[in-house]
Amino acid sequence: MFDIVGTSGDAFNMTRDYAVAMQREGVSIELKVYTNEAKAVEDFRAGLCDAVIATGFRTRPFNGVAASVDTLGSTIIVRNGVIDMTASYDVVRKLVQTFSADTPQVTRLMTDASGKYEVGGILPVGAAYLVGSDRRNNTVEKLAGKRMAALDYDPAQAVMIKRIRAVPVPSDITNISQRLSSGATDFIAAPALAYKPLGLDKGVGERGGVGRFPLMIMSYQVILNRSKFPEGFGARSRTYWLGQFDRVLQLIRKAENDIPAATWVELSPENTYRYTLMLREARIDIAQMGLYDKRGLKILKRIRCHVNPADPECQSKSEEVWQQP
């Protein structure tokens, strides 16, 4: 499992509790923690591990439906020009609940086409915010020409960065902090849980800030090699992680509260609406390019409209009926 701070991290502590709980299910799990996420996924693919826990960006190749939570704006709810984070996390919760149902239909969705891999859990790690070295760059127009870190294993990020006429800088989660503090990039996107562990405050300094506009809510996902676990274990595992939702939500909220109030950069209601529409248009285009899973986006659209039926998008068939590419 991946935890950038190793055995002292929250992700490792939660996974250790998971291993104890799964013993009661008759499954013995030996943990191996990686601070290099790419290596963790590589070892899993090579059969050196029976399961892997990593970010949704890394697990997308195993299951695009589950990784749809990690798509631009797909879980974000806006009401009266303000981001409603409680409702946004409710969208994520309902998605995790949907994917935790022990039914044949859900099992098919959570299993890849080869039948080898199954999603064993989804857990939010928080909203990804723009973290920059100059708080004056507080509109999309001002981002034109600026350098922004793009995870090189998630091509959708570079697509989005180019759409706003910024410059993508290929990066990895292990070096984005150094790129920001060294001036190699002007912006990165990261959740509050990464702010202290990655030392992002050094890159922000006195002039920078964190924009209070979530690009998405990121996730950690458990991927199982089905042949290594008992029949039906995937559903029991997903149910366990659903039960940890409120625990991790407390960690996320604490991390956001720990960022100094003066560091946050607020958006106007007009720009909040404008950027939400911008993310929606980008998400649809990126799905049409084949980089996002359309089935997952369709499920998320329905959940958003259940949570916030007054949103104008709920009067359209966008993300429900797709144009043929």
Results as ranks from 00 to 15, higher is better:
240 Y>N: 04
212 R>G: 00
222 V>Y: 01
278 M>V: 02
206 E>Q: 12
205 G>E: 06
295 R>V: 15
224 L>T: 13
295 R>P: 02
275 Y>V: 14
195 Y>N: 07
230 P>V: 09
277 L>E: 08
225 N>V: 12
229 F>V: 12
207 R>G: 03
185 T>L: 10
190 A>I: 10
244 Q>P: 05
202 K>R: 14
283 R>G: 06
235 A>S: 13
261 A>I: 08
291 L>H: 10
262 A>P: 00
236 R>A: 14
241 W>S: 06
300 L>K: 02
260 P>K: 12
278 M>L: 14
281 E>M: 10
300 L>H: 04
204 V>D: 06
263 T>K: 09
198 L>P: 01
258 D>W: 10
266 E>G: 06
197 P>W: 03
185 T>K: 03
256 E>Q: 09
190 A>S: 15
249 L>A: 13
235 A>W: 03
261 A>N: 04
222 V>T: 09
272 T>D: 03
279 L>P: 00
301 K>F: 11
265 V>N: 04
247 R>H: 15
261 A>C: 07
192 A>L: 02
192 A>Y: 01
221 Q>V: 13
221 Q>E: 15
221 Q>R: 13
280 R>A: 10
218 M>I: 15
210 V>E: 05
229 F>H: 03
198 L>T: 04
248 V>W: 02
211 G>Q: 06
218 M>P: 02
202 K>D: 07
